[in-house]
Computed example of a mutant assay.
Amino acid sequence: MSLKNPAALEFLLSRRSRPAKTLVAPAPTRDQLVPLLTAAARSPDHGKLEPWRFIVIENGAMARLAELTETCGQSLGKTPEDIAKARSQFDLGHLAVAVVEVQKPSEKIPAIEQTYSAGAVCLALLNAALAAGWGANWLSGWQSHDPAFCKAAFGLAGNERLAGLIHIATEGAIPPERPRPDIDALTDWVSE
C-alpha cells in the first residue's frame, strides 16, 4: 500500500537547481554525502544491473580537472571562451559527484535502458542534495563527452561514460524563478 507524502510532492513541484557558479563553501562532508549517494542509488536500475557508479570529486581535485579541461580543449581546437566556460565548473567547484554510466552485458536490459538508469541516478542525487538543504546543479559540457578527458580525469573504461557532474555545496544566492514547461502543450491523453 502506497502512502501519500504531500511534503515530497510539494518539494518536487517547487524544486529548483542552483547554478553551480553560485555555490559556495562549505560542501558536504563525506558523512553528509553518503546518505545522498544512498538515496540516488535507490533509482530504478533495470534488472538490478546497477549500470552506474560514483566518483566523488573533492575540492583538492578541482584544480587538476580545470587544468585538464584547458589542455583537452586546446587539443580539440576549442575556442578560449568554450574552454573558460568548461573549466569554470572546476575553477569554482567545491565538491562534485561524477555519475558514471557503466554499460553491462545483458540479454534482457537494452543499453539505452542502462543509460536511462544513469540519468535517473543523476536526477535522484540532485534532488536528494536539494532536499537535504544543499545547493546543487547537474552539469556536463563538451569535456564530459570527450573520451580522452574522461579517461585522464576519471580513468573511465571503454564501457563507461560520464552521465553528469552533480555539483553540491552551500547555496550562495537564491536564483530567480524561470518559466516552466506548458504541461497542456506537452501532454496527450489516450483513452481508447
Rank of each mutant, 00 (worst) to 15 (best):
M1D: 13
L9E: 12
L13H: 11
S14V: 03
R15L: 08
R16G: 01
A20V: 03
T22H: 06
V24M: 12
A25C: 10
A25E: 12
A27Q: 07
P28M: 10
Q32N: 05
T38P: 08
T38G: 11
A39W: 08
A40Y: 04
R42F: 12
D45P: 00
E50A: 13
F54S: 00
I57L: 08
E58H: 10
N59A: 14
N59Y: 05
A61Q: 09
M62P: 02
L65D: 04
E67H: 13
E67C: 14
L68K: 00
T69F: 00
E70G: 07
C72Y: 00
C72D: 01
Q74I: 14
S75C: 11
S75W: 09
L76F: 11
K78A: 11
P80V: 10
D82P: 01
A84C: 04
S88C: 06
D91T: 04
G93M: 01
H94C: 03
A96E: 02
A96Q: 01
V97R: 03
V97L: 04
A98F: 02
V99P: 02
V100Y: 03
K104S: 05
K108C: 06
P110T: 09
T115G: 08
T115W: 14
S117Q: 07
S117L: 10
S117E: 02
A124T: 11
L125T: 03
L125M: 08
N127F: 04
A128K: 01
A128F: 03
A131V: 00
A132T: 01
A136V: 00
A136E: 04
G141Y: 04
W142Y: 11
P147Y: 09
P147H: 10
F149Q: 06
F149W: 03
G155C: 10
G158P: 02
R161C: 09
R161L: 13
L162W: 00
A163S: 11
L165I: 08
I166W: 02
A169L: 11
T170K: 08
E171W: 01
P175K: 09
P176Y: 11
E177L: 14
R178C: 05
R178Q: 13
R180C: 06
D184N: 15
S191N: 13
E192M: 13
